[in-house]
Nucleic acid binder design. Structure first.
Lengths: 259, 259
DNA sequence: TAGTGGTCTAGACCACTAG
DNA sequence: TAGTGGTCTAGACCACTAT
């Protein structure tokens, strides 16, 4: 963090480093000098302005990109990253009164945005470890899975893989591509009334595969999200493993102080 | 994603790219070939193995670092990143029965780890926007703030800045450095019984300042956390703005399905 | 002191975008 | 086609770690 004496300083002046350049641009963005979506000085401009080599300018830009502040587009330039619309995940969205519509669809509608989903997989598979643990079944027990990619306004925002014990889905629409109403209503209809929910999640940087699937920009973390639904008897009847682009998600929990 | 024909392929062989090198190492880590904390091939080793220039090897290593998979230590080498202990955040930790101890301290003790906190600021300040909104007061209204840095096992893991309406803290220990018991007990003692809690979460990459404060490794996202405490009359009496290293936090919420 | 990663320079060729 | 960013090479000097 040694502060640089800039070019205007007399004598022993430190050379400008990529970190200095990055700081200048970062500050300018914070000050509002550059608006979201606006163009930033490119590699050439930085080379000239600071008198550095191309790699130095590139390093500065890479720093900002890894912070999620900018995006570089080949052939176009470097831009201030635009904020994405936030998708809110909260306790209220599971309310009984909303079971008729798919949870996400309902939320999107409320926020005046279009949600769509693409089924990636519908099959019977061996329960992966995280699923088996939560469904309280042995590892590799066959389970039904429905895996989908959820998009909002054409942008993929969430991978959601649901797993159900076979006996739960046996005679229901949950095996179909388009169940029509939400998992909640479906489960309720077959005698497994969703009664308690457990949500677990953490954040991390995505793998390149995940970057491709969710079309993530550099510097975007993902939320690893696991939701377990318990029925009226306390039995876990669905585990959903999900991956959510962190730049478009906000989790909100509203609850009374427990005794 | 063009698959490379490796050196052993005949004729027009693609050159090995930094992405290829990164993929090889990533796969090896996933396969368990390299254990957490274990040493990875350094720049020189990669240059020789793949016949590339130093910058190419460095780029490959940088990719892995930005994914949070590796750490480079100057003068030592490149290593597989070790997993940090997880600090769990959930609904139960606010239970009335725990109000005597500080919330975090209690959780740490249960997990057999030492928590410590350093006060960074105790003062009356103008309410920042996010605080004013949640306390339902005009922007820049004076509020009392207590800002602290929480560490677990000597590692900083959370910045927590609490804000209180002035009339709430006027005659209480909340203004002191070491209130002795938790905010919850303090608020309760002065007639503002914590009754409802609202928690809001999102994740993003940290600024360099935040990296320094939380001593974050590259490729570590942060969780931005806002907790609002409401008293028995539904009045917001505390807003806490917090920043948490994502590689050491896991959120768990357990709640009944709302009506 | 040897070996490692951190930073910078200088120049090449490629891929994509826009006029 | 000009201009932009993406990737790679080759070599220099520096900072830190270990021995």
């Amino acid at each position: 963090m040694s502060n640089m004496h800039r070019e205007d300083a007399v004598g022993a002046r430190d050379r400008v480093s990529s970190a200095d350049i990055a700081r200048d641009i970062r500050d300018a963005i914070a000050q509002g000098t550059h608006q979201p979506g606006g163009r930033l000085p490119g590699e050439k401009a930085l080379m000239e302005k600071y008198g550095v080599a191309r790699m130095t300018a590139r390093t500065a830009i890479a720093m900002l990109q890894n912070e999620g502040l900018t995006v570089s587009e080949q052939g176009r330039g470097v831009f201030v990253r635009e904020r994405r619309h936030m998708q809110r995940h909260g306790t209220e969205r599971y309310a009984r009164s909303r079971w008729q519509k798919a949870v996400l669809g309902a939320e999107a509608t409320e926020q005046n945005r279009r949600a769509s989903r693409v089924i990636r997989k519908l099959a019977t598979v061996s329960a992966p470890e995280r699923v088996a643990e939560r469904l309280s079944i042995p590892l590799d027990t066959p389970v039904w899975t429905r895996q989908r990619l959820v998009s909002l306004e054409e942008r993929p925002i969430q991978v959601a893989d649901s797993y159900y014990p076979l006996d739960v889905v046996e005679r229901t629409k949950l095996r179909e591509t388009e169940p029509g109403s939400s998992d909640f209503a479906q489960l309720d209809a077959i005698g497994h009334t969703p009664t308690r929910i457990r949500e677990e999640w953490s954040a991390r940087m995505p793998s390149p595969t995940e970057v491709a699937t969710l079309e993530l920009l550099p510097g975007t973390p993902v939320l690893e999200f696991v939701r377990t639904i318990f029925d009226q008897e306390g039995r876990p009847v669905e585990v959903m493993l999900s991956l959510i682009a962190a730049d478009s998600a906000e989790m909100i929990y509203d609850f009374p102080v427990p005794e």
